[in-house]
Write a protein that binds this DNA or RNA. Structure first.
Length: 452
RNA sequence: GUGGGCGUAGCUCAGUCGGUUAGAGCGCCAGGUUGUGGCCCUGGAGGUCGCCGGUUCGAUCCCGGUCGCUCACCCCA
């Protein structure tokens, strides 16, 4: 839709004018606060990586949708579609010398070349939190707790969102016990992933179909039956004699208990249909959704115990998640949880008559030296015009330099909210060692949304 | 990648059964005599009616293509 020869932005990419950047910053700030509260430290990596880093590790879907090309040195490279491989690469080099567990987080911008849809663009920011070097369920629970706390920090409670958790090894053991061969396993995982979105007949058809799972009638029936009563109790009962199932169920119970102790059980539901597409997950996996079901998954993650060694590092267990900014921002906007954007400055200096303009600049300079945000009209404008500019800029106070007061060594300071005006000595405005001219100027500008 | 819907001013949208200078509200700019913002009044700028081609005496309107947006599918960071 390029208009009159101008450039348009690339499909699937976003501009962030101040009112949109305010929301992004609001989300990032919450993510960083929560990360730190849980003892995670921030890292980053390059947005461009060697193509091979992804082709071997990520699922086929991701590889098909890479933004990839050859650079001038004939290297096959790709814009990062996810952060985990970079993390693994970085840790492969240095994890040996680091105390475990490693608690790292990042907010990378990620890229995928695919047709954009609602909640899914070609570029997004993703909060990645990973806990490396500890294989117990306590770390799985810790990581999910961080994700949920991040949402809670933004105003989304257990009434708004829920985490659906499952265990890949548990599902694999169950399927194996049911008679699914290891060759059929990936296809069956794929079908199970769709259980919620398709009618039972279609699911059965897929399970039987030779193009997909290729199961016999009896096994198909058993699997379908399994998902009619998919609770942990019924699973344990049905597979009581299968040791690997029993072990995984026990792990799952520990996990749920720890989440309860951390105060997150209202958010969490066991759900065997959560599979996740990425190839490298090995244990407990989870996805977080809004409860209305109106949006895509807000967050997904799980345990990936072999990725680091695949990338050439030490074999370290790891668990982590990614939470994208796109779906989350849509949800926040819909729930009116996004910050109201309004520019703000401490002072706008109004000059009445050109004779005062030099003084205005000296006052501005002195006040800026004190850390105040100060603007004034850059052209010769009517008083009325200057006041409306002050209002538009969100000035807390206006300093009025009129010939009458200036002659007596004073200025008028008007509080724009209350409309109250008082006289202040010019020397107080100009002397950087003095302080406090108007109301409400102690707030640090950098902490405000509009001023970030 | 597949299919459906849509595409008129910065934004939200009217409108033209094909016919001369395409409209509104909001926003923006300028004024309502350079001592006061939010309200009000007046005026103005801004559109090759997404782009290319076809049909026609004539297209923003009809047809085709294309690009973009959007929904669904595929799939899922």
């Amino acid at each position: 839709m390029s208009k009159s020869g101008k450039f348009a932005k690339l499909p699937g990419f976003r501009d962030f004018p101040p009112e949109d950047l305010a929301l992004r910053n609001h989300v990032f700030a919450a993510w960083r606060r929560v990360s730190r509260r849980y003892g995670f430290v921030e890292y980053d990596g390059p947005p461009l990586e060697e193509l091979d880093l992804y082709t071997a590790k990520s699922g086929d879907e991701i590889v098909d949708q890479l933004y990839q090309f050859s650079d001038k040195g004939d290297r096959r490279v790709a814009l990062r579609p996810e952060m985990t491989p970079s993390l693994a690469r970085i840790l492969a080099i240095r994890s040996r010398s680091m105390p475990k567990p490693i608690r790292w987080f990042s907010i990378p911008q990620l890229f995928r070349y695919e047709r954009q849809q609602r909640g899914r663009l070609r570029e997004h920011f993703q909060w990645n939190v990973d806990l490396v070097g500890e294989g117990g369920v306590a770390s799985d629970a810790e990581v999910l707790a961080v994700a949920l706390e991040g949402l809670r920090e933004l105003g989304l409670g257990s009434k708004d969102v829920r985490a659906r958790v499952s265990h890949r090894a548990l599902l694999a053991s169950i399927l194996q016990a049911t008679g699914v061969s290891s060759e059929q396993m990936p296809a069956v995982f794929g079908v199970i992933d769709r259980i919620e979105r398709e009618p039972p007949e279609r699911i059965a058809e897929r399970l039987r179909s030779g193009d997909e799972a290729g199961l016999d009638e009896a096994t198909t029936k058993k699997i379908l039956g399994l998902f009619q009563e998919p609770g942990l109790d019924s699973v344990e009962e049905a597979f009581a004699e299968h040791e690997s199932v029993v072990t995984c169920v026990a792990t799952m119970r520990d996990y749920l208990r720890i989440l309860d102790e951390l105060g997150f059980s209202p958010f969490v539901e066991f759900d065997l249909t959560i599979v996740r597409g990425l190839a490298y997950y090995t244990g407990i996996v989870f996805e977080i959704f809004d409860r209305t079901g109106e949006f895509r998954a807000i967050c997904g993650g799980g345990r990936y115990d072999h990725l680091l060694e695949h990338v050439g590092g030490d074999p370290l267990p790891a668990v982590g998640f990614g939470m994208g900014d796109v779906v989350l921002s849509e949800l926040l906007k819909e729930r009116s949880l996004s910050p109201v954007y309004a520019p703000e400055v401490d002072y706008f200096i109004v000059s009445i008559g050109e004779a005062q303009e030099g003084l205005a600049r000296r006052v501005a300079s002195a006040q800026r030296g004190l850390g105040r945000s100060v603007i004034y009209g850059l052209g010769n404008q009517s008083v009325k015009k200057q006041f409306s500019a002050a209002a538009a800029a969100g000035a807390a106070s206006v300093i009025v330099l009129g010939p009458d007061e200036v002659e007596q060594g004073r200025a008028v300071v008007r509080d724009m909210k209350s409309g109250e005006e008082r006289q202040v000595a010019l020397e107080d405005l100009l002397d950087a060692s003095r302080v406090q001219v108007g109301a409400g100027i102690d707030r640090s500008t950098s902490e405000r949304v509009g001023g970030v």
